[in-house]
Computed example of a mutant assay.
Amino acid sequence: MIHGTVTYRGGRIFDGTRLIDGYAISFKDGQRLAYGPDADVPDMGAVIHLGGDILGPGYVDLQVNGGDGIMLGDDPSVDTLSRIARAHRALGVTHLLPTLITDTPEITRATIAATIDAVREGVPGIAGLHLEGPHLSVARKGAHDAALIRPMTDDDLTELLAAADALPCLKVTIAPENVTEAQVAAMAQAGILVSLGHTDADYDTCRSYMAAGARCVTHLFNAMSQLGNREPGLVGAALACGKVFSGLIADAVHVHPEAIRTAWAAKSGPGRIFLVSDAMAVAGSDKTEFTLKDRTIHRRDGQLTLSDGTLAGADLDLTTAIRVMVEQVGLPLEAVLGAATTAPSQLLNAGLVTPADPNCRASDLIRISRDLRAVSVLI
């Protein structure tokens, strides 16, 4: 925590919607003391000139598979969750959903229990849990282990409903091939954030599942039925359905910048496209490879791949994703910052703490360099 009084000025303030010039903010022992136009906020305590950098809310990442050299499924425990959260905090993420890739029922139960414990213990950054599988489509499995993919049973559903009662947010990625509409409706009614992904389902089926309660799509374009001229697939359904939000891996590897630009323009609202890192064990580390269920994942040239070249998560942080969206896709910086903060926070049903919030603490904010190449935390 910041001790004493600190005033920040000379930068741009992102309030969750707008980038504001000519504003300053000061903190006393980490709690917001003053905020407003430069003329209304005198220099108090230590004065830090931002030099045009951006001060705004921390990132919200709903798809974090690992970090600090470890995957969530390697050792589902409060310690593992703490390590992953700390690694991503250094990358600017203040709220995340640790994500379990398709695994055994035993590992899934252990992960749910560990996350419930982490939330009870107040581990910073842990906003719930994302279960990406095992109820997916083998045809669109990506790097998921086909041997572990299976239909959702009544027992599975009962366990998920119980987990939802104990967690602030439970996100579950499913495919219509292995989950019924009735199961989706039951999850949605219990407050579970149901997301469609890793599926080959057609457009009409996807729209039916959205009507049943699915409100999200996992990593748009990747591991799903594509937008065709006669069959729009899940991509088309995600863009057409206004209530649905869509995660996006904006590394210019998983999705071409022109496809991102087209999707952004086509997306019906109020649901929005938001950024995810899909980060793996290498996040926040210098590791060049790691194992995923006895399979080696290689880190080269900003990509993570299996030996056969299949993409296996992303070597990405959200600051880099923002830079790709601005410099390669050509989108406005304000909108892109919102895609890393405001939009995903809506899915968590948790208010985003911004500099404009009187209860804002320095630890809620991050500093992004003006060239979008570095991020630092305020603590």
Rank of each mutant, 00 (worst) to 15 (best):
L170I: 14
N349S: 15
L55K: 02
K141S: 05
V172Q: 04
D75P: 06
N349W: 11
C216N: 11
A188V: 03
A110M: 07
M1E: 15
R370L: 06
L337D: 00
R361G: 06
S26D: 10
L333T: 07
P42D: 07
L129P: 05
T115W: 06
P124R: 12
T94M: 10
V244F: 05
V47G: 03
D40M: 03
T310K: 10
N349T: 14
L161S: 10
D294C: 08
P98Y: 05
S307Y: 11
G247K: 01
S26F: 07
L304R: 00
G233D: 13
I192S: 03
G10R: 02
G351A: 14
G51R: 05
E177G: 12
V47K: 02
V6Y: 00
R230Q: 15
L378Y: 09
R207G: 11
L337K: 00
S307T: 13
K243D: 15
A362W: 00
T310F: 04
A201E: 01
N178F: 03
I116P: 01
D74Q: 12
Q189E: 15
V123I: 13
I149M: 04
E289H: 11
M44F: 06
I70G: 03
G191V: 05
R261D: 04
R361Y: 07
D156Y: 09
A163P: 06
V324Q: 14
A343E: 07
T94A: 11
G73T: 12
V282T: 12
L304V: 09
G247D: 04
L72H: 08
V119W: 01
S345I: 01
G236Q: 09
P332R: 10
K267G: 00
L304Y: 02
H130F: 10
T158Q: 11
Q63E: 09
L148H: 08
G351K: 15
R261E: 05
M280K: 04
A164Y: 00
S307A: 15
S195V: 11
G191Q: 07
L372P: 00
L318F: 13
G269I: 01
D145H: 13
G313Y: 03
